[in-house]
Design a protein around this nucleic acid. Structure first.
Lengths: 335, 335
DNA sequence: AGCTAGAATGTAAACGCTTACATTTTTATT
DNA sequence: AATAAAAATGTAAGCGTTTACATTCTAGCT
């Protein structure tokens, strides 16, 4: 592989000039530039990014940590991140954190050891102070799907509270009075906020939140099934169930079918996330929609802005969810 | 950030010794090793992987190119790759190729410029010679989901021909005689091979392949819909349709429902891939299953073996598909 | 004690770039 | 044409490691 030295020899200029041509930095005459470029082409020169990084202490790479790769979610996030960063000539190093503290920290350590210029993190288990300290002492970070107080411009977030509110509200306006709620693990920020929104909507309609009609799941399908079973078991009546994500809604739908409950006649169901495979549900699931890959893209932009000095890039830190009404929800009729 | 030099000073040894401790190379007394490790800990030393790469011309990173991140497929592949490589202390740099020649080549170039030690590629558009040349002249590669002649130990592949054969066979043995086939784009290797398998099964049962009952889709849901519409339109009778993947099967199922065709009574449908969301289809889709993430894992192992000299690692180059019979297929009754 | 083989450690030259600073060339001004 | 200022180019010192080779220990012999 040709080095910058060979290029400089062939072009009859110094190393520095070649470097300047490569980086579009400093002044170079058009004539010299042409000579150098010709030499590069002739030698099939490809700059060694490792040497470049060592000398400049920038790696042009961004580390990304997501809980996992599979499922409907993180693929989209990653897609948004990669597209945006690649267009800017940055590399993406990706690793998984498994929503587990030790694993998340190990992942971050792993990325740091690779000298990433910045980190984009979707982490659940590590705490806010750890993140702030990390950003202060090691490397700039951008956090997706989480609010870290006093750190707002480094956070790309969905208004989960609003989402929970809208989901609930859209059921309440149809006359439902008794609502059950299947939440995600409440130590997770998004799960917690969605439930808060639910409570706010209830309050607004003069209804009391009934803790017996809350089931705390784990965002996975099976916990949605267990949730509805449990809620039915305790015998408190309800005409609609709000699920904090679509996968749990899928579980609930499955149990409803087994029990012979007609959806939406006997029970209205609403999900959250609008993941792509909800199109296969029957009846079609009403849910809360937002731009998943858009959030990834924004995280990438935030990095471009904060770290690589792309000052006039627009970054949207907060995303607004909207309601998608399909056929799993209907008016409350009868008593 | 502390450097190796500061560690060596604090420990009262030379740079070389610190390096030896870090890499477990060469001989170091237990006592010295202890001193060095203590110094590392005290300084919170973290080796600079960039400098290390420059000096050793190994980056301990593997470039991965997949067509895209979203969808049910590549997330699993990536998951398999990342887990295996991370355990081996290697980094993963990921980029997307969009099944487009220019984009795939750009992606590969991109990874090469990052000095990856090896590449794992899931590419459709570039040709075999390009891949062989790449491996010969630039960097070792492992190819997923594709057969490159004379290059078998660098390929991790599914026996697509067998899959197509099994899918078809499993319908034929139930008495179906008129089969339609919705294929992927036939320039893609997997699509082509699956169709070959289909033909072999037909032949084995003494049936002639009828080109009018073939529709060439693009592996996406909408083309499955169009495919079944088209097949119905031409008026040739058939009692079962084999789809070259589950997404197209989903499209076909949708059209069948619209047309009031009962599945499987009026039409048997079988898919391919067994992606996770087929569980939501009604009726449940019969399909062809294989280890998606296992293929990613094997690709990673192949790299470990070929590039990093992990000699006694077992690599399975060919994966065997199996039939999963669910309720979208039934016996052929009547004429 | 003196010698030696082998083990442990040290020395210093890469690796391929960037960049502050020094030098030379060009252009503008008088 | 002489001079100053600005522009272009060159020089050389890093960046933090690895590693071939050189040197210094250590222990086992005689």
């Amino acid at each position: 592989m040709a080095t910058i030295y060979e290029v400089s020899e062939l072009a009859g200029v110094s190393l520095a000039t070649v470097s300047r041509v490569m980086n579009d930095s400093g002044k170079v005459t058009a004539k010299t530039r042409k000579k150098v470029k010709a030499a590069m082409r002739e030698l099939g020169y490809r700059p060694n990014s490792i040497a470049r990084s060592l000398a400049s202490s920038r790696t042009d790479s961004v580390g990304v940590l997501v809980p996992m790769f599979y499922g409907p979610f993180y693929g989209e996030i990653l897609s948004g991140i990669e597209t945006e960063l690649r267009d800017a000539g940055k590399h993406v190093i990706i690793t998984a954190g498994h929503s587990d503290k030790a694993s998340e920290e190990a992942g971050i350590e792993f990325l740091l050891s690779r000298n990433c210029d910045a980190l984009i993190l979707h982490v659940d288990a590590v705490d806010d102070d750890y993140l702030k300290k990390l950003c202060r002492e090691s490397v700039p970070i951008v956090v997706i799907g989480r609010h870290v107080a006093g750190f707002e411009d480094h956070c790309i977030n969905l208004d989960n509270e609003l989402g929970g509110y809208l989901a609930t509200k859209s059921v309440l306006v149809l006359g439902h009075k008794k609502l059950a709620y299947i939440s995600g693990p409440l130590w997770k920020h998004d799960a917690h906020d969605r439930l808060q929104g639910h409570k706010r909507a209830l309050m607004e309609h003069g209804l009391e939140f009934n803790a017996q009609l809350l089931y705390e799941g784990n965002f996975r399908e099976a916990s949605g099934s267990r949730g509805l079973e449990e809620l039915l078991r305790i015998g408190q009546p309800f005409s609609a169930v709000i699920c904090a994500n679509d996968e749990m809604a899928a579980g609930a739908l499955g149990v409803a079918r087994e029990r012979g409950l007609e959806i939406p006649e006997d029970l209205s169901v609403i999900g959250f996330d609008n993941v792509f495979f909800t199109r296969y549900f029957r009846p079609k699931l009403s849910t809360i929609d937002y731009q998943i890959s858009g959030m990834g893209q924004m995280a990438a932009r935030a990095v471009l802005k904060i770290v690589y000095g792309d000052k006039d890039l627009e970054v949207q830190n907060m995303f607004q969810p909207t309601v998608v009404m399909r056929s799993s929800v209907t008016c409350k009729t009868g008593p």
